[in-house]
Simulated scan of single mutants.
Amino acid sequence: MKIESIRLKNYKTFRDVHLTDIPPFLVVVGANGAGKSTLFDVFGFLHDCLKGNVRQALDKRGRFREVLSRGVPENESILIEIQYRMPITNVERLVTYSLEIAEQDGLPFVKREVLRYKRGRYGSPYRFLDFTNGAGFAITNEEDFHQPDESLDREHQTVAPDTLAIKGLGQFERFKAANAFRQLIESWHVSDFHITAARGRKEAAGDSEHLSETGDNLPRVALYLHERYPEKFQEILQIMAHRVPGISRIEPRLMDDGYLTLRFQDGSFKTPFLDRYVSDGTIKMFAYLVLLHDPHPHPLLCVEEPENQLYPKLMTELAEEFRLYSTRGQVLVSTHSPDFLNALQLEEVCWLVKKDGATEIRRAKDDAQIARYMSEGDQLGYLWKQGFFEGADPQ
Protein backbone atom coordinates (compact mmCIF):
# COMPACT_ATOMS: atom_id res chain seq x y z
CA MET A 1 0.00 0.00 0.00
CA LYS A 2 1.52 3.32 -1.10
CA ILE A 3 0.25 6.89 -0.74
CA GLU A 4 0.21 8.58 -4.15
CA SER A 5 -1.11 12.05 -3.32
CA ILE A 6 -2.32 14.30 -0.50
CA ARG A 7 -4.69 17.24 -0.86
CA LEU A 8 -5.21 19.65 2.03
CA LYS A 9 -7.62 22.55 2.15
CA ASN A 10 -7.95 24.93 5.10
CA TYR A 11 -5.73 22.77 7.32
CA LYS A 12 -3.63 25.26 9.33
CA THR A 13 -1.09 26.86 6.94
CA PHE A 14 -2.24 24.69 4.01
CA ARG A 15 -5.11 26.66 2.51
CA ASP A 16 -5.19 24.62 -0.69
CA VAL A 17 -2.31 22.36 -1.72
CA HIS A 18 -2.11 19.13 -3.68
CA LEU A 19 1.06 17.05 -3.41
CA THR A 20 1.02 14.43 -6.16
CA ASP A 21 3.29 11.65 -7.40
CA ILE A 22 4.70 11.02 -3.91
CA PRO A 23 7.74 8.72 -4.15
CA PRO A 24 8.48 5.89 -1.69
CA PHE A 25 11.06 8.16 0.00
CA LEU A 26 10.29 11.89 0.22
CA VAL A 27 12.23 14.53 2.14
CA VAL A 28 10.72 17.92 3.00
CA VAL A 29 12.76 21.06 3.72
CA GLY A 30 11.73 24.59 4.59
CA ALA A 31 12.14 27.40 7.07
CA ASN A 32 10.84 27.15 10.63
CA GLY A 33 7.10 27.76 10.59
CA ALA A 34 6.74 26.91 6.90
CA GLY A 35 4.56 23.88 7.64
CA LYS A 36 6.80 20.80 7.82
CA SER A 37 5.39 19.70 11.18
CA THR A 38 1.87 20.54 10.00
CA LEU A 39 2.25 18.27 6.97
CA PHE A 40 3.23 15.37 9.22
CA ASP A 41 0.51 16.28 11.70
CA VAL A 42 -2.12 15.39 9.11
CA PHE A 43 -1.27 11.73 9.65
CA GLY A 44 -1.26 12.16 13.42
CA PHE A 45 -4.63 13.91 13.18
CA LEU A 46 -6.24 11.04 11.27
CA HIS A 47 -4.71 8.58 13.73
CA ASP A 48 -6.18 10.54 16.66
CA CYS A 49 -9.58 10.70 14.93
CA LEU A 50 -9.51 6.93 14.65
CA LYS A 51 -8.42 6.35 18.26
CA GLY A 52 -11.09 8.69 19.61
CA ASN A 53 -13.22 11.03 17.54
CA VAL A 54 -12.88 14.19 15.48
CA ARG A 55 -13.71 16.49 18.39
CA GLN A 56 -10.98 14.99 20.58
CA ALA A 57 -8.43 15.19 17.76
CA LEU A 58 -9.29 18.86 17.19
CA ASP A 59 -9.25 19.66 20.93
CA LYS A 60 -5.72 18.27 21.08
CA ARG A 61 -4.76 20.89 18.48
CA GLY A 62 -6.57 23.86 19.98
CA ARG A 63 -10.06 23.12 18.59
CA PHE A 64 -11.57 23.61 15.14
CA ARG A 65 -10.87 27.32 14.73
CA GLU A 66 -7.17 26.84 15.51
CA VAL A 67 -6.86 24.10 12.89
CA LEU A 68 -8.89 25.99 10.29
CA SER A 69 -6.57 28.20 8.22
CA ARG A 70 -6.31 31.76 9.45
CA GLY A 71 -8.28 34.30 7.46
CA VAL A 72 -10.75 31.68 6.24
CA PRO A 73 -14.45 32.27 7.04
CA GLU A 74 -15.64 30.20 10.01
CA ASN A 75 -18.32 28.52 7.90
CA GLU A 76 -15.65 26.96 5.68
CA SER A 77 -14.67 23.31 6.16
CA ILE A 78 -11.36 21.44 6.46
CA LEU A 79 -10.61 18.95 3.70
CA ILE A 80 -8.12 16.08 3.85
CA GLU A 81 -7.92 13.82 0.80
CA ILE A 82 -5.47 10.95 0.44
CA GLN A 83 -5.01 8.72 -2.60
CA TYR A 84 -3.23 5.41 -2.15
CA ARG A 85 -2.67 2.23 -4.11
CA MET A 86 -3.73 -1.15 -2.78
CA PRO A 87 -4.36 -4.58 -4.33
CA ILE A 88 -8.07 -5.37 -4.88
CA THR A 89 -8.97 -8.60 -6.69
CA ASN A 90 -5.27 -9.00 -7.54
CA VAL A 91 -5.13 -5.62 -9.29
CA GLU A 92 -3.42 -2.49 -7.96
CA ARG A 93 -6.12 0.16 -7.72
CA LEU A 94 -5.99 3.84 -6.82
CA VAL A 95 -8.24 4.44 -3.82
CA THR A 96 -9.29 7.92 -2.66
CA TYR A 97 -10.27 8.72 0.91
CA SER A 98 -11.85 12.14 1.38
CA LEU A 99 -12.69 13.67 4.76
CA GLU A 100 -14.43 17.02 5.17
CA ILE A 101 -14.87 18.50 8.66
CA ALA A 102 -16.97 21.52 9.58
CA GLU A 103 -18.32 23.18 12.72
CA GLN A 104 -21.84 24.15 13.72
CA ASP A 105 -22.87 25.85 16.97
CA GLY A 106 -19.35 25.33 18.29
CA LEU A 107 -19.37 21.56 17.67
CA PRO A 108 -17.26 19.89 14.95
CA PHE A 109 -18.82 17.23 12.75
CA VAL A 110 -17.91 15.10 9.74
CA LYS A 111 -19.57 16.95 6.90
CA ARG A 112 -18.62 14.30 4.30
CA GLU A 113 -16.57 11.12 4.31
CA VAL A 114 -16.07 9.19 1.07
CA LEU A 115 -14.00 6.19 0.03
CA ARG A 116 -13.94 5.52 -3.70
CA TYR A 117 -12.05 3.77 -6.50
CA LYS A 118 -12.62 2.56 -10.06
CA ARG A 119 -14.03 -0.94 -10.46
CA GLY A 120 -12.87 -1.12 -14.06
CA ARG A 121 -10.41 0.49 -16.42
CA TYR A 122 -12.95 3.06 -17.59
CA GLY A 123 -15.55 5.22 -15.98
CA SER A 124 -15.65 7.35 -12.86
CA PRO A 125 -14.52 6.13 -9.43
CA TYR A 126 -17.31 4.40 -7.51
CA ARG A 127 -18.15 5.33 -3.91
CA PHE A 128 -17.86 2.28 -1.66
CA LEU A 129 -18.37 4.33 1.50
CA ASP A 130 -20.29 7.59 1.60
CA PHE A 131 -21.37 9.33 4.82
CA THR A 132 -22.75 12.78 5.50
CA ASN A 133 -23.20 14.13 9.02
CA GLY A 134 -23.26 10.67 10.61
CA ALA A 135 -25.46 8.82 8.10
CA GLY A 136 -24.62 6.94 4.93
CA PHE A 137 -23.85 3.59 3.36
CA ALA A 138 -21.02 1.18 2.65
CA ILE A 139 -20.82 -1.53 -0.01
CA THR A 140 -20.52 -5.07 1.36
CA ASN A 141 -19.81 -6.97 -1.88
CA GLU A 142 -17.38 -4.52 -3.48
CA GLU A 143 -15.21 -7.32 -4.88
CA ASP A 144 -18.04 -8.72 -7.03
CA PHE A 145 -16.68 -6.95 -10.07
CA HIS A 146 -18.93 -8.87 -12.45
CA GLN A 147 -21.96 -7.20 -10.88
CA PRO A 148 -23.25 -3.92 -12.36
CA ASP A 149 -23.01 -0.89 -10.08
CA GLU A 150 -26.73 -0.91 -9.32
CA SER A 151 -26.52 -4.52 -8.05
CA LEU A 152 -23.97 -3.81 -5.34
CA ASP A 153 -25.23 -4.33 -1.79
CA ARG A 154 -25.48 -1.10 0.18
CA GLU A 155 -25.59 -1.40 3.93
CA HIS A 156 -26.94 1.77 5.47
CA GLN A 157 -25.50 2.78 8.83
CA THR A 158 -25.41 5.70 11.26
CA VAL A 159 -22.50 6.88 13.40
CA ALA A 160 -22.01 9.79 15.76
CA PRO A 161 -21.61 13.03 13.73
CA ASP A 162 -18.07 13.55 15.09
CA THR A 163 -16.96 9.95 14.47
CA LEU A 164 -15.29 8.55 11.36
CA ALA A 165 -17.32 5.91 9.56
CA ILE A 166 -14.16 3.94 8.87
CA LYS A 167 -13.63 3.64 12.63
CA GLY A 168 -16.63 1.37 13.00
CA LEU A 169 -17.07 -0.13 9.56
CA GLY A 170 -13.33 -0.60 9.10
CA GLN A 171 -13.39 -3.28 11.79
CA PHE A 172 -15.31 -5.64 9.49
CA GLU A 173 -13.76 -7.64 6.68
CA ARG A 174 -16.85 -7.28 4.50
CA PHE A 175 -16.00 -3.60 3.98
CA LYS A 176 -12.74 -4.29 2.17
CA ALA A 177 -11.54 -0.78 1.28
CA ALA A 178 -12.59 0.72 4.64
CA ASN A 179 -10.92 -2.13 6.52
CA ALA A 180 -7.67 -1.69 4.56
CA PHE A 181 -7.57 2.08 5.10
CA ARG A 182 -8.26 1.71 8.81
CA GLN A 183 -5.36 -0.75 9.07
CA LEU A 184 -3.14 1.71 7.19
CA ILE A 185 -3.92 4.53 9.63
CA GLU A 186 -3.50 2.29 12.69
CA SER A 187 -0.12 1.01 11.58
CA TRP A 188 1.64 4.12 10.32
CA HIS A 189 4.31 5.66 12.56
CA VAL A 190 4.82 9.38 13.14
CA SER A 191 8.05 9.60 15.12
CA ASP A 192 8.30 11.96 18.08
CA PHE A 193 11.50 10.46 19.48
CA HIS A 194 12.87 11.78 22.79
CA ILE A 195 16.27 10.60 23.95
CA THR A 196 15.37 11.17 27.61
CA ALA A 197 12.36 8.89 27.18
CA ALA A 198 14.49 6.14 25.61
CA ARG A 199 17.12 6.10 28.37
CA GLY A 200 17.01 4.38 31.74
CA ARG A 201 15.34 1.40 33.31
CA LYS A 202 12.02 0.28 31.86
CA GLU A 203 9.34 -2.11 33.05
CA ALA A 204 9.63 -5.46 31.32
CA ALA A 205 5.90 -5.60 30.55
CA GLY A 206 4.45 -3.50 27.75
CA ASP A 207 4.55 -3.00 23.99
CA SER A 208 7.66 -4.60 22.57
CA GLU A 209 7.09 -5.52 18.92
CA HIS A 210 7.44 -1.99 17.51
CA LEU A 211 9.31 1.08 18.70
CA SER A 212 6.87 3.62 20.13
CA GLU A 213 6.58 7.14 18.74
CA THR A 214 8.67 8.56 21.62
CA GLY A 215 11.07 5.61 21.84
CA ASP A 216 10.27 5.00 25.51
CA ASN A 217 10.12 1.23 24.96
CA LEU A 218 13.53 0.94 23.27
CA PRO A 219 14.96 -1.63 25.76
CA ARG A 220 11.85 -3.83 25.41
CA VAL A 221 11.99 -3.76 21.60
CA ALA A 222 15.74 -4.49 21.68
CA LEU A 223 15.11 -7.50 23.92
CA TYR A 224 12.28 -8.66 21.64
CA LEU A 225 14.57 -8.52 18.60
CA HIS A 226 17.42 -10.14 20.52
CA GLU A 227 15.23 -13.10 21.50
CA ARG A 228 12.87 -13.47 18.55
CA TYR A 229 14.97 -12.18 15.64
CA PRO A 230 18.62 -12.73 16.64
CA GLU A 231 19.91 -12.44 13.07
CA LYS A 232 18.16 -9.08 12.65
CA PHE A 233 19.55 -7.90 15.98
CA GLN A 234 23.07 -8.92 14.99
CA GLU A 235 22.67 -7.01 11.74
CA ILE A 236 21.79 -3.88 13.76
CA LEU A 237 24.86 -4.40 15.97
CA GLN A 238 27.13 -4.74 12.94
CA ILE A 239 25.83 -1.46 11.52
CA MET A 240 26.28 0.24 14.90
CA ALA A 241 29.87 -1.02 15.17
CA HIS A 242 30.58 0.36 11.69
CA ARG A 243 28.96 3.76 12.21
CA VAL A 244 29.60 4.51 15.88
CA PRO A 245 33.33 4.11 16.66
CA GLY A 246 34.06 2.03 19.75
CA ILE A 247 30.67 0.39 20.21
CA SER A 248 31.19 -3.34 19.85
CA ARG A 249 28.14 -4.74 21.60
CA ILE A 250 24.70 -3.73 22.91
CA GLU A 251 22.92 -5.96 25.37
CA PRO A 252 19.31 -5.62 26.58
CA ARG A 253 19.40 -7.06 30.10
CA LEU A 254 16.65 -7.96 32.56
CA MET A 255 17.88 -6.84 35.99
CA ASP A 256 17.30 -8.61 39.31
CA ASP A 257 14.61 -6.09 40.25
CA GLY A 258 12.57 -6.99 37.16
CA TYR A 259 13.42 -3.89 35.13
CA LEU A 260 15.01 -3.79 31.69
CA THR A 261 18.04 -1.74 30.74
CA LEU A 262 20.47 -1.41 27.84
CA ARG A 263 24.17 -2.03 28.39
CA PHE A 264 26.76 -0.84 25.86
CA GLN A 265 30.18 -2.39 25.36
CA ASP A 266 33.02 -0.15 24.24
CA GLY A 267 36.03 -2.02 22.89
CA SER A 268 38.32 0.15 25.04
CA PHE A 269 36.78 -1.11 28.30
CA LYS A 270 36.31 -4.58 29.78
CA THR A 271 33.05 -3.80 31.57
CA PRO A 272 29.89 -2.71 29.69
CA PHE A 273 28.17 0.45 30.90
CA LEU A 274 24.54 1.56 31.21
CA ASP A 275 22.81 3.66 28.56
CA ARG A 276 22.78 6.75 30.78
CA TYR A 277 26.54 7.03 30.20
CA VAL A 278 26.19 6.79 26.40
CA SER A 279 26.07 9.84 24.14
CA ASP A 280 22.76 11.13 22.79
CA GLY A 281 23.90 10.40 19.26
CA THR A 282 24.64 6.75 20.06
CA ILE A 283 21.22 6.23 21.63
CA LYS A 284 19.47 7.94 18.72
CA MET A 285 21.34 5.99 16.03
CA PHE A 286 20.56 2.71 17.78
CA ALA A 287 16.86 3.69 18.07
CA TYR A 288 16.69 4.58 14.36
CA LEU A 289 18.26 1.27 13.38
CA VAL A 290 15.78 -0.60 15.58
CA LEU A 291 12.95 1.32 13.89
CA LEU A 292 14.28 0.91 10.35
CA HIS A 293 15.07 -2.80 10.72
CA ASP A 294 11.67 -3.72 12.15
CA PRO A 295 10.81 -7.25 10.91
CA HIS A 296 7.25 -6.04 10.29
CA PRO A 297 7.70 -2.51 8.90
CA HIS A 298 5.13 0.26 9.11
CA PRO A 299 3.45 1.06 5.77
CA LEU A 300 4.18 4.75 6.41
CA LEU A 301 7.02 6.19 8.48
CA CYS A 302 7.29 9.93 9.25
CA VAL A 303 10.44 11.29 10.92
CA GLU A 304 11.20 14.93 11.70
CA GLU A 305 14.78 16.24 11.62
CA PRO A 306 16.66 12.95 12.14
CA GLU A 307 19.98 14.81 12.01
CA ASN A 308 19.67 16.23 15.55
CA GLN A 309 22.42 14.87 17.88
CA LEU A 310 24.03 12.92 15.03
CA TYR A 311 27.46 13.51 13.54
CA PRO A 312 27.20 15.13 10.06
CA LYS A 313 29.20 12.37 8.37
CA LEU A 314 26.51 9.88 9.38
CA MET A 315 23.91 11.66 7.25
CA THR A 316 24.76 9.85 4.02
CA GLU A 317 24.44 6.45 5.64
CA LEU A 318 21.28 7.42 7.50
CA ALA A 319 19.70 8.58 4.24
CA GLU A 320 20.59 5.23 2.71
CA GLU A 321 18.94 3.43 5.64
CA PHE A 322 15.73 5.39 5.04
CA ARG A 323 15.91 4.64 1.33
CA LEU A 324 16.31 0.91 2.00
CA TYR A 325 13.33 1.01 4.34
CA SER A 326 11.27 2.66 1.58
CA THR A 327 11.45 -0.61 -0.38
CA ARG A 328 9.27 -2.11 2.40
CA GLY A 329 7.24 0.90 3.55
CA GLN A 330 6.86 4.55 2.53
CA VAL A 331 9.06 7.15 4.27
CA LEU A 332 8.55 10.90 4.78
CA VAL A 333 11.36 12.88 6.43
CA SER A 334 11.84 16.57 7.23
CA THR A 335 15.33 18.01 7.58
CA HIS A 336 17.45 21.13 8.00
CA SER A 337 20.67 19.29 7.18
CA PRO A 338 22.55 20.08 3.94
CA ASP A 339 24.61 16.93 4.56
CA PHE A 340 21.44 14.83 4.57
CA LEU A 341 20.19 16.57 1.41
CA ASN A 342 23.49 15.89 -0.33
CA ALA A 343 22.72 12.16 -0.11
CA LEU A 344 19.37 12.51 -1.88
CA GLN A 345 18.17 12.22 -5.44
CA LEU A 346 16.27 14.91 -7.34
CA GLU A 347 12.86 13.22 -7.18
CA GLU A 348 13.15 12.62 -3.43
CA VAL A 349 13.02 16.27 -2.32
CA CYS A 350 10.39 18.98 -2.02
CA TRP A 351 10.41 22.27 -0.16
CA LEU A 352 7.80 24.47 1.49
CA VAL A 353 7.30 28.16 0.75
CA LYS A 354 5.12 30.39 2.90
CA LYS A 355 3.40 33.31 1.16
CA ASP A 356 0.90 35.63 2.84
CA GLY A 357 0.44 33.12 5.65
CA ALA A 358 -0.24 30.14 3.35
CA THR A 359 2.14 27.31 2.48
CA GLU A 360 2.99 26.11 -1.02
CA ILE A 361 4.79 22.87 -1.90
CA ARG A 362 7.45 22.80 -4.62
CA ARG A 363 9.27 19.77 -6.03
CA ALA A 364 12.99 19.81 -6.80
CA LYS A 365 12.43 17.71 -9.92
CA ASP A 366 10.10 20.40 -11.32
CA ASP A 367 12.72 23.17 -11.05
CA ALA A 368 14.62 23.32 -14.35
CA GLN A 369 17.64 25.08 -12.87
CA ILE A 370 18.06 22.63 -9.99
CA ALA A 371 17.56 19.69 -12.34
CA ARG A 372 20.24 21.02 -14.69
CA TYR A 373 22.75 21.51 -11.89
CA MET A 374 22.06 18.03 -10.57
CA SER A 375 22.60 16.52 -14.03
CA GLU A 376 26.01 18.21 -14.02
CA GLY A 377 26.99 16.53 -10.76
CA ASP A 378 25.94 19.09 -8.14
CA GLN A 379 24.28 18.10 -4.86
CA LEU A 380 20.99 19.23 -3.37
CA GLY A 381 22.42 20.30 -0.01
CA TYR A 382 24.89 22.69 -1.62
CA LEU A 383 22.19 24.07 -3.92
CA TRP A 384 19.92 24.68 -0.94
CA LYS A 385 22.66 26.53 0.95
CA GLN A 386 23.37 28.65 -2.13
CA GLY A 387 19.73 29.78 -2.31
CA PHE A 388 18.52 27.84 -5.33
CA PHE A 389 15.45 26.57 -3.44
CA GLU A 390 13.51 29.75 -4.18
CA GLY A 391 11.40 30.91 -1.25
CA ALA A 392 12.69 28.26 1.15
CA ASP A 393 14.78 30.64 3.26
CA PRO A 394 13.20 32.67 6.10
CA GLN A 395 12.01 36.08 4.97
Rank of each mutant, 00 (worst) to 15 (best):
M1D: 06
K2V: 11
F14L: 01
L19Q: 02
L19E: 01
I22K: 05
P23V: 09
G30C: 08
S37Y: 05
S37C: 04
C49F: 00
V54Q: 06
D59F: 09
K60S: 13
R65F: 03
R70K: 05
P73S: 05
E74K: 06
E81A: 05
E81C: 00
Q83R: 15
E92Q: 11
E92M: 09
T96N: 14
I101K: 13
K111V: 14
R112T: 14
R116M: 03
S124N: 12
S124E: 12
R127A: 09
R127G: 03
R127E: 15
L129I: 13
D130I: 10
N133W: 05
I139V: 15
E143Q: 15
E143M: 08
H146P: 12
S151R: 13
Q157G: 01
V159L: 03
P161N: 10
D162L: 02
D162W: 04
K167E: 01
G168F: 04
A178R: 03
A178H: 02
A180P: 00
R182W: 00
L184W: 00
W188Y: 01
S191Q: 02
A198C: 06
S208D: 07
A222W: 00
Y224Q: 03
E231I: 10
Q234G: 15
I236M: 09
I239T: 15
M240L: 13
A241W: 09
G246V: 11
I247S: 08
L262K: 11
R263G: 12
Q265A: 15
G267H: 10
I283Y: 00
L301V: 14
V303I: 15
E304Y: 10
N308K: 14
N308P: 14
P312D: 11
P312Y: 08
M315C: 09
E317S: 13
L324C: 04
L324D: 08
G329K: 07
S334L: 03
S334I: 05
T335K: 03
F340E: 07
Q345W: 00
E347Y: 04
C350Q: 01
C350M: 09
V353D: 05
V353Y: 04
A364F: 07
K365D: 10
D367L: 12
A371W: 11
M374H: 12
S375R: 13
D378R: 03
Y382G: 05
K385R: 09
F389W: 07
